[in-house]
Amino acid sequence: MLYPPHQPLQAAAIPPQRGPAGPAREDESGPWHTEAVCRRDEAGLFFAPSKEPTAARLSREEAAKRVCARCPVVIECREHALLQPEPYGVWGGLTAAERRVVLARRRRREMELKKAASAPRIAAAG
């Protein structure tokens, strides 16, 4: 299981293992989430408390996105959240609702490409 970068360092001290999305990225610096800026921030910034008022949620999500904006592994984090898919929290600068939109667009694009690939080709007149 990949450990979310939002966990405090002591909670994520167990080495990452193979997760549902595949093996953790290992390179000279270790798995991607070890470089995540959010590891130094409070996890509550990235995940909603129960019955959070809308204004508070929007403010918290914007603060979390500002953290993501300065993160060197924001793309890896976003792809992790899209591949899992992570149903809650801000991951890779996107909220759960924003990730659902991205996934829907990807599915629609894939369907359009498959449909275009399987459509009969009409020879150009000339």
Rank of each mutant, 00 (worst) to 15 (best):
L2Q: 01
P5S: 09
Q7T: 01
P8D: 04
L9Q: 03
L9W: 01
A12Y: 02
Q17E: 05
G19T: 00
A21Y: 01
P23Y: 14
A24V: 15
A24C: 06
R25A: 10
E26Q: 12
E26P: 05
E26W: 07
E28Y: 02
S29E: 14
S29C: 03
S29L: 13
G30F: 02
W32R: 00
H33L: 03
V37C: 02
R40A: 14
D41Q: 12
A43N: 06
F46R: 04
P53A: 09
T54N: 03
A55I: 10
R57Q: 12
R60D: 12
E61A: 10
E62V: 06
E62F: 05
V67C: 07
V67P: 04
A69G: 14
R70L: 05
V73N: 01
I75M: 06
A81K: 01
A81Q: 07
L82W: 01
Q84C: 10
Q84R: 08
E86I: 07
G89E: 10
W91K: 02
W91P: 04
W91Y: 13
G92P: 08
G93C: 11
L94G: 04
R99H: 10
V101P: 02
V101D: 14
V101G: 06
L103K: 13
A104T: 15
A104K: 15
R105W: 12
R106L: 14
R107Q: 15
M111D: 14
E112F: 10
E112Q: 14
K114S: 13
K115Q: 12
S118M: 11
S118P: 06
P120N: 09
R121K: 13
A125H: 09
G126Y: 08
